[in-house]
Design a protein around this nucleic acid. Structure first.
Lengths: 332, 332
DNA sequence: CATTCTTTTGGAACCGGTTCCTATTTTTAA
DNA sequence: TTAAAAATAGGAACCGGTTCCAAAAGAATG
């Protein structure tokens, strides 16, 4: 049923090289061009991509490895990558690493086997093994969210995010604050975000900060919040991600604490849900979608052998909403 | 740098057919097997998947077309598909249709070109053109969420979902109810869900139901809720999706209406966020993840030429939470 | 009209595997 | 020890394209 290039050549009474040239815009006379136009259309001819890729030794696929499919950040980033690639005729092959480092490495190897043109990776941390695997893959690898001098990276300005948030909550009059972070192994979220916040705190003499740690899971955050409220009763909890903030908010509701009048809460990320819940969550917006587009654009340039800046820092934006009480006016 | 099968054959002093046989478990003597084991390992040899697919005329890719990447349902379904395929050595190629029917059709054609083994589609509606395109693709196409006699389909029991929800809210004593649905062009969400609900309403004589329509967007739902509250002031709004319910909840908060004591709200879907927000949203859980797994399993059987039931109905489950007031006890 | 330069075309080789068929070697049975 | 059977290996064709090179055809020039 499906015709191949030889069939078409035979039907048109020409050599298959002529058909190939016709399809790829080579020099073909107007007459044969017309004939081939008609015949390929009538036969519904579609070139076999395997055969094309076999000869070309490359395809238009970009592998994207995400830590999980059901996260706002991953979804937005993927959407951005997908749209940018599509406009350039490329395609996105998604791999879900399920937040498992081994699967992340396997995914890279596997994508290299499939001979994708490049890999966009959203890792939680970059290990020596990541570098070795990327090296072995022999194709461009671009990181989003984490950076490494050995690879091309696209990072958010996590330090500034922490700084902005810190200054904002201090401005609002909060002095007794809990910071609920994540493991420092995650350099971006765990370390730099916290350091930015700490820097803001150090600009203010009379504030007390309590540092806590949780996982990225909402349920773990909920439990951590229980501990925080039992131990130090802050006026505000700064959470390292919006999801963590949701967990903390849940705890507040369960304890009957009113947000923000009895407990203020902030997040990081700018997830859609932060604007929908009540009270809307004060957070720092990370432009995931734009980062995805930018990543795809950079990757296309890399696969074309063009130069790309090794490290790009993406700006973030404070998004003050309702979940932070203004203690200045309250005391007036 | 990268070796091909001929290189390996030369290095081992055998014919490439022998190498191929070694790789694919054909009859090879213990001695050559050992030798090839060593050589392929040392050379880091990896077969070229294009060449394999070219000969085999098929690959292990399953195309998945989702309406959008950033929806809970899509994310869960993709995760299910991905995990099931991975266990069977298959891979998922994701296409984002961006809620655009034209792009959905293009995606099918495009996937067929890439010679994926099968397509899993999550359409908002199935048109004649979908059928034609699927037919032309010449590979198995499986629908999730919508059904069509011409294709293999996996649907949720939307009618029962509506029925369960209807009975539940009536049980809770609500009699003046608004149903905020979506277009009936969406047979599953727009039509059957509503019909189930209507059937439940008809089991009760003294209830008044007001039907409204919105899009799937939270913001549109928010606006629709404004209209509903202005026009008929029900004790409860049944929303056709959890996202719509979130929009309605937003309006309630903005108007200072307490949920559920002044306005009860329900959704459909069982999105993660429904359990996190306060009050937690009463909804019907749709097992998206399991559906994804099931879809992948069915697709693998289809590509293997095995028989698969044409229509599978997936059961749903009522998830009563806090957003529905019990008017029975209230009046006691 | 002959000659030269361009444009168009066909043929063959190639990309990197798999598979079929035949030849050779090894094993088993007689 | 030899014949028959079984296991192993090699060679060639094939999958469906692209590309290089040489031949043929057409256009331009003197």
């Amino acid at each position: 049923m499906n015709k191949n290039i030889s069939d078409i050549a035979r039907m048109a009474g020409v050599a298959k090289s002529t058909v190939s040239r016709y399809l790829n815009g080579g020099s073909v006379s107007a007459k044969t061009k017309q004939k081939l136009e008609r015949i390929t259309r009538e036969a519904g001819y579609v070139p076999n991509t395997f055969a094309q890729s076999l000869k070309a030794k490359r395809n238009n696929l970009i592998g994207t490895i995400v830590p999980r499919l059901d996260s706002f950040a991953a979804a937005q980033t993927m959407t951005g990558i997908d749209e940018e690639l599509r406009e350039a005729g490329g395609r996105m092959l998604v791999y879900n690493a399920g937040q498992d480092r081994t699967r992340e490495l396997e995914a890279m190897t596997d994508l290299a086997r499939q001979k994708v043109s490049g890999i966009i990776l959203m890792p939680a941390q970059v290990t020596e093994e990541h570098l070795r695997t990327a090296e072995a893959a022999g194709i461009p690898v671009l990181l989003i969210g984490q950076s490494n001098p050995a690879l091309h990276s696209l990072v958010y300005d996590d330090y500034r995010a922490g700084l902005l948030m810190g200054r904002h909550v201090l401005d609002m009059g909060h002095r007794r604050i809990a910071y609920l972070g994540v493991t420092e192994e995650d350099e971006a979220v765990g370390l730099r975000r916290k350091e930015g916040f700490r820097a803001a705190a150090q600009e203010c003499e009379d504030c007390e900060i309590f540092y806590y740690e949780s996982s990225f899971k909402i349920e773990d955050a909920r439990l951590a919040a229980e501990r925080i409220l039992d131990e130090c009763l802050p006026s505000l909890i700064v959470c390292a991600t919006d999801n963590i903030a949701l967990g903390v908010m849940k705890t507040a509701h369960m304890r009957g604490l009113s947000v923000p009048s009895e407990l203020s809460i902030t997040g990081f990320g700018g997830y859609e849900v932060t604007g929908i819940i009540h009270p809307a969550l004060t957070t720092v917006r990370f432009p995931y979608y734009e980062a995805g587009r930018l990543a795809a654009r950079s990757m296309l340039r890399l696969t074309a052998g063009e130069e790309v800046k090794r490290l790009t820092v993406i700006d973030v934006e404070l998004l003050p909403q309702e979940s932070v009480d203004n203690l200045n006016t309250a005391s007036v």
